[in-house]
Amino acid sequence: MAARTEHEVLATELRWTIAVVASVALISLAILWAGLVHFINPPSNLETIDPTKVHLSPEFTEANLGTRVDEGGRVTTRIVTAQFAFIPPCVVVPADEPVTLRLVSPDVIHGVLVTGTNVNTMVVPGYVSQVHTVFQKTGDLLMPCHEYCGIGHSQMWSTVRVVPKAEFKPGPDGRALCEKP
């Protein structure tokens, strides 16, 4: 319908202004909500690593991946996200305790989220992605790759096994492994 009078033009402009302002407000509130209620915020840790040498690095050497408890009792889970798998394919973590996830990619950009938790980050080659979290629900949580990384992307997923504190039993070297289901 063509606007005939100046008044109609104004009315249309006003309606659209309201629609735009409302959308912007809604999105801002959603961001605030995510940040304040779900504790989702951008990563604050900036740490680089040579992507062609991830497998040569001591920290991300195959035998050091997965969950490890250090002398201070801090729980750290190290994961390599590579086309088209998470290594290791299953990690075990204790519930109700701070856990630090450290992720690296040797090839392309991957994305990681743990369903039902606030863990959600991109894993960019060249950087260590680090997430601090506390898992509250126990059980096997799905951790899929959520950034298209190649033809095998849809088969790229892994498991985060959250066990009650009492059942979390790291070995003498501090390493905790997923037992086969």
Binding site: H55, L56, P58, T61, R78
Partner: peptide, 9 residues
């Protein structure tokens, strides 16, 4: 977190 693991590529 620090890692004291030796590299075993």
């Amino acid at each position: 977190p620090v890692s004291t693991a030796p590299a075993a590529p």
